[in-house]
Design a protein around this nucleic acid. Structure first.
Length: 888
DNA sequence: GCACTCACG
DNA sequence: ACGTACGTGAGTGCC
């Protein structure tokens, strides 16, 4: 029978695991301050792969030392590589302990790398009756793939792996595994520091090898190549290419001192492993082994049993005893809490938990008074959902102290799952199951019939909230984020809840009438398109559309996507002149979008009870601190094109003789930029209330104060301003305004000369991000950037752009949040009937009686522009009218 | 469930 | 040499 062999590239996987968890570096330490990220990640990978492979034999290979037979060939091999971080080095000895405790042999060999050990063993295994799986973070090992040997390369994290068989290598590179070394020979390897051929990268290497198979054959036919720079480089670098290929080739006959027969996989060495996990403080792995964690159990109950009391109308007075913070949780299994069923609730503290399925009990004074009490504070998970859910029952929730979801998100914007069990796990608490497991999902979503299943789940949720509060409050404090939570996000939760509950009225008839017209026009255009194409097809299918345009009608292919031809707007616009069908397709797309997303989509979510739409704002989702809006999204209702803008005519006030009133910040992000960077020239433009894009145009195009700025110059300057905010690149700018990359680069260089403060800021913020691993907004909102130091150019560049953009976008989000809280307070204080309904990132939308409009025209801008004090003024513009459309 | 396209700031 | 603008949500097609 075929046996299974598992070979793991220890250094490379540890390295991957270390950087995958880099943002969590400080959270993963044991009692002695040892960092444990690489060990933890490595073990996750082991768990994952052992399940898939079920090996009979296994080995983890490690690199032995600095010098190998490769350094003898090429002195610079792997030189110039950044030193292994000490936080990783310190973990390596323990990693070997882990491997041993899991019943796997480790091995290293002087003068050879882990690759060579693996290559040699894989070779031997193929001659015996073995199937081999190699796990590594290094794609170079794919050269070892054969029908008997699969190379599993770890992806983003460490548990996601991509399995390379010869077929997969072919699909991925268009090459055989044997050609990988030729590819590396031509392209070189920056991380191993061997050169390859000048100016030849992966793409070129693959192209050449597809034609010539190998480096040797390529050079045999070098005279056949057309005269080109590339040919010159190839000839010039012949020796380098040959050497690089040798360096890339994995040695498959290293003088190993181990044999396959010694690699028997023993399985977990339970006692040793438990001791090791305890030493590493790996609670989740201990849980998996069903180990009682005595000394940790007070803090971290793991499957710890829980007692609860079932509440009934008869014993309801039991809840009157509460005189200190209580945890409360109202269970709504569907995501949309405006309409979800109620499964039950839990309330309690100090290991006294009261549960019930009967949410009507919440209306009883004994309970309702606790929830509304301003004396007894409440600890919850997702306060906004609780407020809205309770409101549906006619019950008020006041005095929320701790919101686990919200605090978790502020501590790390990635901890934004709306599942309590998952969020708790991020903080080391393992005993709450995922909702999906308890309630199922999709069509299978159901409330468990078994009382003990439901009640245990609920009680554990309440207990977890209770137990996590002080720890997470401490962490907030350490991050200087307590004011952000207390003064901004927590009060905002309540404001958002009120906006969602209020909803916005929709003129359903109007929307339907617009829909009918669109449907008519759609079928007309459809017929025209079919005629022009000479056949009927599904216009919505990009695949079919691509075939018609680019194969049958032979239009030039401008851009391709991963899967075929691109038919996106920018492509079609370039083809406009070539065939009338293109214009019609653009028309069709525009109208189809309006019809399906905005007419049908919105009609579907109008509540029949009040003819209103009640969106949900997600307060704990975005990486920058912005809100998002779902079910439906009311933050992307059309405005740019008149056709679509008319949709806004269907958004109307909820009372006769009321109007829609809207105020928006003008250029808030650029003003924030001027403030944060301290750039005097940019600040001056805002202090003098100049047209900012015109002012930028004047500077970057070196125009005099009286020169006219034509529309095109202003448009280009505007694009440059956007580019700066987004974290500029010459390529991105050139694409956006249709100029060459060189011109774009010149614009950017001039911009930085004119605005030196901006340049300085960008350099500083990126440096800061590289050092600290995160960036911050005005209010200490934090975003971790785990990729900021990665070797991968794309990932790193992206992280760098994010480092520049997040403080700007995020601070603008902070400002409008503060303004919203101020507005809610002001409306109440002044006894106004006006209601705040929507937030669209830099805009607030209200409805109000006509007579209050003059009040709002003063009040709203004054609250908005005084939300924070910046070094430049904030500017607010307002409008009002009978519908949202008319508020322009 | 992913890819593509397109709506907004 | 690399291959990009920042942040979102929703509908449709296709596997």
């Amino acid at each position: 029978m075929t046996k299974q062999l598992l070979l793991i590239d220890g250094n490379s996987v540890a390295f991957r695991a270390f950087f995958a968890l880099h943002s969590q570096l400080d959270k993963f330490t044991n009692q002695n301050g040892l960092h444990t990220t690489a060990i933890y990640g490595f073990n996750l990978m082991l768990d994952h792969i052992l399940k898939i492979v079920k090996p009979d034999a296994a080995l983890v290979a490690f690199d032995a030392g600095k010098t190998t037979f490769r350094t003898a060939m090429f002195a610079d091999y792997k030189s110039g590589r950044a030193k292994t971080p000490p936080e990783l080095s310190e973990q390596m000895p323990y990693l070997k302990q882990l491997v041993a405790a899991r019943g796997i042999k480790s091995y290293e060999l002087a003068n050879y790398e882990a690759d060579d050990i693996i290559g040699t063993l894989a070779q031997q295994a193929s001659q015996s009756d073995y199937k081999t799986t190699i796990v590594t973070g290094d794609r170079d090992l794919t050269q070892l793939a054969t029908e008997q040997v699969t190379v599993s390369v770890t992806h983003k994290g460490v548990t996601e792996v991509e399995h390379y068989t010869p077929a997969h290598v072919l699909e991925k590179f268009g090459l055989t595994p044997a050609q990988i070394v030729d590819m590396k020979g031509l392209m070189g390897d920056t991380s191993d520091n061997y050169p390859g051929v000048t100016k030849v990268g992966e793409k070129t290497a693959i192209k050449l090898l597809k034609e010539y198979d190998s480096i040797e054959n390529l050079y045999d036919h070098i005279d056949d190549l057309k005269q080109s720079k590339m040919k010159d480089h190839l000839i010039e670098d012949h020796d380098l290419a040959m050497m690089s290929k040798k360096l890339a080739r994995i040695n498959q006959s290293a003088p190993l001192e181990v044999e396959l027969s010694e690699l028997t996989y023993l399985g977990d060495q339970t006692d040793e492993l438990i001791k090791f996990y305890q030493q590493m403080n790996f609670r989740s792995f201990l849980t998996k082994m069903n180990v009682e964690q005595t000394e940790l159990s007070l803090e971290a109950p793991v499957d710890k049993p829980i007692d609860y009391t079932v509440l009934t109308a008869a014993n309801l007075d039991l809840v009157k005893q509460f005189d200190q913070p209580v945890s409360f949780y109202l269970e709504m299994p569907a995501a949309n809490y405006h309409v979800s069923d109620f499964a039950g609730f839990v309330i309690g503290n100090n290991d006294q938990w009261f549960v019930s399925r009967d949410v009507d009990l919440l209306k009883q004074p004994a309970l309702a008074q606790v929830l509304a009490s301003t004396k007894i504070s409440k600890n919850v998970f997702n306060a906004k959902a609780m407020i809205v859910g309770l409101h549906r029952l006619g019950v008020q929730l006041q005095n929320v102290n701790f919101d686990l979801l919200l605090v978790s998100y502020l501590l790390n914007t990635n901890d934004n799952s709306d599942d309590l069990g998952l969020v708790a796990r991020e903080h080391g608490y393992e005993d709450v199951q995922e909702d999906e497991i308890v309630y199922g999902k999709g069509a299978k979503l159901a409330i468990p019939a078994d009382d003990s299943v439901l009640f245990t789940h609920l009680a554990k949720k309440a207990r977890t909230i209770d137990l996590l509060s002080s720890q997470l409050f401490d962490e907030l404090d350490q991050n200087e984020q307590t004011p952000l939570y207390t003064d901004i996000e927590l009060p905002l939760t309540n404001v958002l809840a009120q906006m969602e509950i209020m909803g916005i009225k929709v003129d359903v008839d109007r929307l339907s009438a617009m829909g009918s017209k669109l449907v008519e026009r759609l079928s007309e255009i459809e017929q025209t398109i079919y005629q022009e194409a000479g056949q009927e097809f599904n216009i919505n299918s990009t695949k079919q559309l691509g075939e018609i345009l680019f194969e049958q009608m032979k239009l030039p292919v401008i851009k391709k996507t991963k899967t075929g031809y691109s038919t996106a707007v920018d492509v079609l616009e370039k083809l406009r002149d070539q065939a009338p069908i293109v214009d019609n397709i653009l028309q069709y797309r525009q109208i189809a979008k309006l019809q399906s997303t905005y007419i049908e989509g919105l009609l579907k979510v109008v509540h029949s009870s009040d003819q209103k739409i009640h969106t949900r704002y997600l307060q704990t989702l975005t990486q920058t601190g912005r809100l998002s809006s779902v079910d439906p999204n009311l933050q992307n209702i059309p405005i740019r094109l008149e056709e679509g803008r008319k949709i806004r005519q269907a958004f109307v006030p909820s009372h006769p003789d009321w109007e829609i009133f809207s105020s928006d910040y003008s250029q808030i992000e650029l003003r924030v930029l001027a403030h944060i960077t301290g750039d005097k020239n940019l600040q001056e433009a805002f202090l003098e209330d100049q047209d900012i894009h015109a002012s930028t145009a004047r500077r970057i195009f070196k125009l005099g104060p009286n020169d006219e700025i034509d529309r095109n110059l202003r448009r280009q300057a505007k694009a440059v301003n956007f580019g700066i905010v987004y974290g500029i690149s010459d390529y991105g700018l050139s694409q956006n305004i249709g100029i060459t990359r060189k011109q774009a680069k010149a614009f950017i260089d001039t911009y930085f000369e004119e605005y030196p403060g901006v340049k300085k800021y960008i350099d500083t913020v990126v440096k800061q991000a590289k050092k600290m691993g995160y960036v911050e907004t005005l209010t200490h909102r934090r975003r971790y950037l785990p990729d900021i130091n990665t070797k991968n150019f794309n990932q790193r560049s992206f992280a760098e752009r994010t480092a520049m953009n997040t403080p700007i976008q995020g601070s603008a989000a902070d400002i409008i949040k503060i303004a919203m809280i101020g507005m809610q307070t002001a409306l109440k204080q002044q006894n106004l009937q006006a209601k705040m309904l929507l937030q669209i990132h830099d805009e607030l939308v209200f409805e109000a009686p006509k007579e209050e409009i003059p009040v709002l025209e003063k009040l709203v801008p004054s609250v908005m522009d005084s939300a924070v004090k910046l070094d430049v003024p904030l500017k607010v513009e307002s409008a009002h009218g009978a519908t949202w459309y008319d508020a322009k």
